Simulated assay, not measured.
Amino acid sequence: MSFIAPATSAAPSTITNGPFWPDVHLATLRDAMRLDGTVTNARLEHAVINAALQTNRDLKDWRIGQQILGFDGLEQVPAEQINGQSIYLQLYLRAVYCLTKANLIERYSDFDSTAKGLKAGEVLGESVDDLRRDARFAIRDILGESHVTVELI
């Protein structure tokens, strides 16, 4: 048995976002979410665009409210800072990153449909729910909502 290192990714690129939302830098996302070169830039771009669309849609009313208040971009919205960055920026990117990785993992079997690939997809599938939960929590934090929804019957 030999070890074959995954290919390194192609030159990093950026997914441009709407005027209010920050752009998503693929190299930074790869580092943060531990995505190696087996995920092509084309596949990653597709997943990031989908994640940004979903996150932007979930935050549409909040964004409109901020724009009415005169803020033209997420980084202009007053917020606490951690590590020199707005917590809103950090939460937004967390949501996009987590949804991106969840999307990639869900489609893992497309990449490798052998028994080994399907088994790896099953193992990775357990973390899809965690990633989606983390994205939902980040979005709810931006909205100022609780992480728990309780309904009395």
Rank of each mutant, 00 (worst) to 15 (best):
G121S: 15
G65D: 13
D130Q: 12
I105W: 05
R34H: 13
P6R: 05
I82G: 01
F3D: 12
A32S: 11
K116L: 11
A79H: 04
I139R: 07
V123L: 14
Q66L: 05
I82M: 09
E106I: 00
K60E: 14
R94W: 01
P22K: 07
R57H: 11
P12D: 12
L99Q: 14
T40P: 06
F71V: 00
S9Y: 11
L59Y: 00
T16E: 14
G144M: 06
S127Q: 13
Y88W: 12
Y88S: 06
N56R: 09
A135Q: 05
A7S: 12
Y97P: 03
I82L: 14
L53Y: 09
G37Q: 05
P19W: 01
G117Y: 03
E80R: 12
R30K: 07
M33L: 10
H147R: 15
V123T: 09
K101L: 11
E145W: 06
P6H: 05
V128E: 08
C98M: 12
R43P: 01
D110Q: 11
S109F: 04
T28C: 01
G125V: 03
L104H: 04
E126L: 11
R94Q: 12
L44N: 06
I64T: 10
A102S: 13
P6V: 03
A95L: 02
D141E: 14
Y97I: 00
A95M: 04
R34N: 11
Q54V: 12
R132A: 08
F111I: 13
I105P: 05
L104V: 05
I153T: 08
F137Q: 12
L89N: 10
I15T: 10
I82S: 11
L131K: 09
I82H: 10
Q90D: 10
V48G: 09
L74Y: 05
S9E: 11
G117H: 01
H46V: 06
P78N: 09
N103W: 06
G18A: 12
H46Q: 15
A42K: 13
S146C: 04
R43Y: 04
D112C: 03
D110N: 14
V150C: 02
I139K: 04
L26G: 08
A51E: 04
D112H: 09
L29Q: 08
Q81P: 01
I105R: 02
D58W: 02
D141V: 00
K60H: 10
